[in-house]
Amino acid sequence: MQKLKPYSYTSIALIGICVVVALLSNLGESEEFLRTLFIADPDHPGLSDVLSGQIWRLITPIFIHFNVMHIIFNMLWVWDLGRRIDREKGARFYIGFVAATAVVSNIAQYVVSQSPFFGGMSGVVYGLFGYMWIRGRFDKSFNSGMRKETVHMMLAWLVLCWTGLLGPIANWAHLAGLLVGVVWAYLETRLIDTTKVANAPENINLSKKQNLVYLSSADILKIEAQRSWVREHYLPDARQKFDTVAGKLNIIDAILNQKPLAARPQQEQDSLEIVFADALVQETGLGWATIDDGDSRTLVLVTADAPLMIFGLVPAARLLSDNAKPEVAGAFAMTLESIRKMIQERATPVP
């Protein structure tokens, strides 16, 4: 079972830089030391330093911290969120994301406040939080979404900081960082949806195996109710055809021809996905399971033998061709080929 790597080299480097700057600046008390790290020299107007070539100033304020709790709070989040984003997206993405979020959040804080005396990793932390929150919410294949309790706590803390009760805080950096993460994740999710191979179920990251459980009684009852809704579209004397793969695909095709998918409620779309998955199970020998992340349960298909592979269900929208005309048989053939190819590739030993 693949486990979350307990560390990230990128996070270790970021934390190390912050600690060194904190020590050398006596937690922000040495203005002379920090003059080259502030977004602008206090004696120089606007972004004249940056425009003269000192572009590091757009990033370096994130390494400045002004008290023990400030740095401890931020470094704990960098350690936790950083290793998760490093696992999901890789170090190169992580570094690029931190740099982009730092630039936007630092500029936002400076432009609004007109003061260079600010610092901290909080804008980046809120960027990481926003990215993982939105990706986890809209992309089922993303394995590092945020728990509801964490989302509520982070948003509540954001609001509390704006009240002024906690003293002077770079609130615009927090807000800008959060917006960067949210917008980035949303656009990336939309891009994934439009570029993902048509009709191919994603192979869910194996780190999710730690949450893989058998179907509960509630899961079974829900699935059976969805199957029953699909079966009811057969004439009574032809319902036995539902037992075959071709029969399942024919009824899905008939349902999609009766009424456009976009006009159907989510429950009906989910029912079509279940029966399409039933046909895959019948043809491939895959089994049903569910992933429990603590907040929700996601139905998946799994291989019966090692190596274990986990497949998400095929969204109902992928059962249609580009012109919205049902093409269920073709979608099934492509999905079947994709699954078999992935299983074969995973089972083939690397020379």
Rank of each mutant, 00 (worst) to 15 (best):
M1Y: 10
S217G: 10
H70S: 05
I343K: 00
Q210Y: 05
F63Q: 03
G164F: 00
S48F: 10
G167Y: 06
F33S: 09
K5Q: 15
A333W: 03
I255G: 07
I220V: 07
V213R: 12
Q240T: 14
W157M: 11
V104I: 08
D278E: 06
P326H: 02
M132C: 08
T284M: 05
Y186F: 10
V197M: 13
V182L: 11
V112N: 07
I310Q: 06
S141G: 12
G136D: 01
E337R: 10
P351T: 13
A176S: 02
E345A: 13
M69Q: 02
W184F: 12
A289T: 02
Q258R: 15
V213W: 01
V103I: 15
A324G: 10
H174W: 00
D41R: 05
D139P: 09
A277C: 04
V275F: 01
S105F: 01
S105Q: 05
V300T: 00
R346H: 06
L187N: 04
A331W: 08
Q266E: 14
V314N: 09
A91C: 11
D237I: 15
I107E: 03
R239V: 12
K209I: 11
G119P: 03
M309W: 07
L272F: 07
S338L: 10
A176Q: 01
T163I: 04
V281F: 10
V159F: 06
W184K: 07
A347S: 13
S228N: 15
D305V: 09
E224D: 09
D293G: 02
E273R: 08
A156M: 14
L51P: 06
Q344E: 14
L187A: 09
Y186D: 02
V180Y: 03
R83P: 03
L280K: 03
D243Q: 07
S48K: 13
A108D: 06
T244E: 07
N67M: 04
S113W: 02
L215C: 01
D237N: 14
H70N: 02
V104Y: 04
G285M: 11
M1V: 11
K148R: 12
A170T: 08
V20H: 00
N171H: 03
I72Q: 04
A304R: 12
R35I: 14
I251Y: 07
T335Q: 08
V281D: 05
V300A: 02
A173H: 06
T348W: 08
N203P: 13
A156Q: 09
A198K: 10
D292C: 03
N257M: 15
L319C: 05
V328C: 10
F38I: 05
L166Q: 04
L76Y: 00
P45W: 02
G120I: 07
S228E: 15
Q54I: 09
K196M: 14
V350L: 15
A254Q: 12
T36Y: 13
A200N: 01
F93S: 06
R318D: 15
N323R: 14
S144I: 14
L235N: 13
A91F: 09
